[in-house]
Write a protein that binds this DNA or RNA. Structure first.
Lengths: 205, 205
DNA sequence: TCGTATACGATACGATCGTATACAGGGGCA
DNA sequence: TGCCCCTGTATACGATCGTATCGTATACGA
C-alpha cells in the first residue's frame, strides 16, 4: 500500500502536470490562446485552477512549457528526417511527418495556432521548421538531387509553407473537401500531387 | 453653412462607421479576435464604445461586417483574375494579388487571422479563395496550358496554400529573412521560384 | 419652428478573466 | 512523534471583458 501509494502519487503528480499540458495544448490549438481560459483548461485536465500557478507560474508559463515540448517533438522529427538519403528522401520525410501528424495531431494544430501569435515560442517553432527544410534541401543538393540554379532558401520556405498548409486548412477541410486533410486518401492524393510538383510542376511552360 | 454642415455630418457618419471597420480589421488582424477589445477598437477609431453596438449590434456583428467587406474585395480580385488569359496568366494573377496585398495589407492579414478561427465568415473567405484558384486552373486547362493528368482539385488547393503562405509567415519574416514577405525583392524572388516550381519543379526525379 | 428620429458619448452592470491567498493531506527526515 | 516541504484544492480579489442604458445633440420633415 505505501509503495503503491508512492507510485500512484508520483504517477498522479506527473499526470496532473502533463494532463494540464495536454489540455492546454488542445484548447490553445482549438480556440487560440486568448479564447482558452485557465478554468476551462483545468476542467479538461480534471484538476483545480491553482495547479497552473503551482507548476507553470501563470497561463503564459504554461504556454512556454507547451512550446518547449512541441519544439522538442519537431526536433525529433528533424533528426529522424536527416537520416533519410537517396531519391526517396522526400517521400520518407513526408511519411515521417504524416506519421507524426497522425500520432500527435494536437501538436500540429497547436503549431498552427501558435503561428497566429508572434511570441518567442512561435518564432522558435517556425525557425525549427525552416531549419528542418533547409537541411533537407542542402542534403539533396549534396546528393545532386536538386535541379540547377535552384533558389535554395525559397525552396526551404516553400516546403515549410506546404507542410503547414494542410494544418491551416484542416478546420475547413470537412466542409470543403468532404474529409480531413489527414485522411489517408487525402494524404495520398496530396503526396502524389506534391511529388509531381517538385519534380515536374503541373503547368506547361 | 447648413449644406456644408450636412455634408460634414454625413461624411462623419460614414467615417465613424468605416473607421470602426478599419480599426477592427487592423486589430483583429494584429492580435486576433479574442485579444482585441472593443474599447481598444473604439479608441483606435477615435469614437466611443457605444457606436459598435449602434452600428453593428455587437463585437461579433462588427466582425461579420468586416468579413463581408473583405470577401467583397476578394471577389473583385477574382473577377479581375478571370480576365487574364494566355501563357502569362499566372504571372498576371500573381501581380494582381501582389498589388492588392500592397494596397490592402491589413485585409490580407485579416484573412490570415480569420482563418485561425472557424466562423461562417472565415469559411466563406476560404471558399472564395478556393473558387478563384479553381477557376484559374480550369481556365488554364481550357487553354491547354495544363500538363496531362493533373489533379486539378489539388492544384487549386496548392495555389490557395501558396497564396496564404507568405501571409502566415509575414509576422516572422523580418527576423527570419531580414525583410517583409511583401518587400519587392522578396516578391520577385518568390515569384521567380514559384514560376519555376509550377512549370518544372526544383528536384530531379 | 417645432417634433421626432437618429447619432453619439458617458457610464453602469454582470460576467469572466488571470492571479493571489489560505488551508488540507501525506511522505521524508530528525 | 513532530516538523517541514511539496502537491493539491477551494475560494477570494481586482481588473477587464462585452453589453445595456440613459442623457444629449443634431438633422430632417411637417
Amino acid at each position: 500500500m505505501p509503495q503503491s501509494a508512492t507510485k500512484t502519487a508520483a504517477t498522479t503528480q506527473l499526470n496532473r502536470r502533463q494532463r494540464l499540458i495536454l489540455a492546454g495544448r488542445h484548447l490553445f490549438a482549438a480556440k487560440g490562446y486568448s479564447a482558452a481560459g485557465v478554468r476551462e483548461i483545468a476542467a479538461e485536465a480534471g484538476v483545480s485552477i491553482g495547479l497552473i500557478r503551482t507548476h507553470f507560474g501563470s497561463k503564459a508559463g504554461l504556454r512556454e512549457e507547451i512550446d518547449r515540448q512541441v519544439i522538442a517533438q519537431i526536433e525529433d522529427l528533424c533528426s529522424r528526417a536527416s537520416e533519410h538519403l537517396g531519391t526517396e528522401a522526400l517521400d520518407l520525410l513526408v511519411e515521417d511527418a504524416v506519421e507524426w501528424v497522425e500520432r500527435e495531431r494536437d501538436a500540429l494544430l497547436y503549431v498552427r495556432a501558435a503561428l497566429m501569435e508572434k511570441t518567442p515560442g512561435s518564432q522558435a517553432l517556425l525557425r525549427q521548421l525552416l531549419e528542418i527544410m533547409r537541411r533537407f534541401v542542402a542534403l539533396n543538393r549534396e546528393r545532386d538531387l536538386l535541379q540547377d540554379d535552384v533558389d535554395e532558401e525559397w525552396a526551404a520556405t516553400f516546403l515549410v509553407i506546404d507542410f503547414l498548409g494542410p494544418a491551416v486548412l484542416e478546420p475547413f477541410s470537412e466542409e470543403e473537401f468532404g474529409m480531413s486533410m489527414y485522411h489517408r486518401e487525402m494524404v495520398k492524393r496530396r503526396s502524389a500531387f506534391m511529388n509531381r510538383v517538385v519534380t515536374r510542376g503541373f503547368m506547361k511552360s
